[in-house]
Design a protein around this nucleic acid. Structure first.
Lengths: 192, 192
DNA sequence: AGCATAACCGGACTACAGTCCGGTCGTCAA
DNA sequence: TTGACGACCGGACTGTAGTCCGGTTATGCT
């Protein structure tokens, strides 16, 4: 009767792969700041229109590249072993989330900065952000907070990629950032 | 012997005023997003080079426009009456700072977003940011925290203009944002 | 296989941020 | 007052993000 979602055309899928591969290659080779959208389209051997139709804008391209790596983290949160996954106390899960997210950030910093700052407010419009927000909000309300959504948004503010790139550039040791966040979470929701 | 800093030339000063006035006018009239740097230079009757020499870039222009309004807040913090100024407990001063900063943000939201997001990391390179950081850091270390600098940076992350524009756009009531921040500060450093 | 349809393709085009440099004019010292 | 210096001026120029539309080609039905 109703078919599933219309299948992606073969040429479209091929171009998507070509573009993602070209972008990842160029980013790794020259650094994100020195790669333009034209470069990517040219390297993939397609026109610019194709690039923009597939990914919307530069931030969308970044999100697509990050997709797999983020999915790993999301899966571990939703169904992996505790304390990151379900089963541990809210406090323990919040601590585990902070560690896991910081580590994810650390491994993909420039890409995340790009996807979050391509245009003002870009971060908050992504589905991934909604996922993190939902998770933190649940943990906070399990911990008895009254305005979990706003508070969760504030906590995620403390995890902005831009901020952590700044801290890294300033030379702040990674372990100090982790320690500060754990202190903060301890005060918010209790001990580990 | 050594003269003071070389005086600004009369034409340069005149052009600075013209540019600031033109920018404020256009921003108010059309909204920040619909004003280009060319528009501003043309409205002020000067060339683009002049605009960029005076203010560096778009974010620098925003900072210059915000300068006075920020200075009021800085002065109140450094020498005004408690609890915002010196004399009150660190906890009380932190609460007062959060209120005052949120209110400042609320009154200048688009301009602050522009000055913070013109380029990635722009926020952290400004003198004003260093001032807020210093203040919050002092209050936290007076409250007995061990890593006041990193923690202060995280708290300011929760006060990013981009985030609060998003919360406003989402319809979150201002009083709820205030309440959440006060709850958070209470846990960090004690009661009001 | 043959055809109608709609999605897809690509590159020319616009708009904007930011740079550069030859010419100009304010400033200071004599 | 005059002259030399250097800061200042302006607009043409570059590089980039993102849009648009006429031509093309995959797809599903007969």
């Amino acid at each position: 009767m109703f078919g599933g979602p219309p299948r992606e055309r073969a040429d479209a899928a091929r171009n998507r792969s070509l573009l993602l591969a070209a972008a990842e290659g160029l980013f790794a080779e020259r650094g994100i700041d020195h790669v333009s959208m034209d470069d990517i389209a040219r390297a993939a051997g397609v026109g610019k229109g194709t690039l923009y139709r597939r990914f919307g804008d530069k931030s969308g391209l970044g999100i697509a590249i990050l997709d797999d790596r983020e999915r790993d983290l999301q899966d571990a949160i939703l169904g992996g072993p505790p304390p990151l996954g379900p089963g541990a106390s809210p406090a323990a899960r919040l601590h585990a989330f902070a560690d896991a997210y910081l580590s994810y950030l650390d491994r993909n910093l420039d890409l995340v900065v790009m996807s979050e700052t391509a245009s003002p407010g870009a971060r908050y419009r992504t589905g991934v952000y909604a996922g993190w927000l939902w998770h933190v909000q649940l943990l906070l309300s399990a911990g008895g907070w009254e305005r979990p959504r706003v508070l969760a948004a504030c906590l995620l503010g403390a995890l902005s990629a831009d901020l952590h790139r700044h801290l890294r550039a300033e030379g702040t040791p990674h372990r100090e950032v982790e320690a500060a966040l754990h202190d903060l979470i301890d005060r918010l929701i209790g001990e580990r």
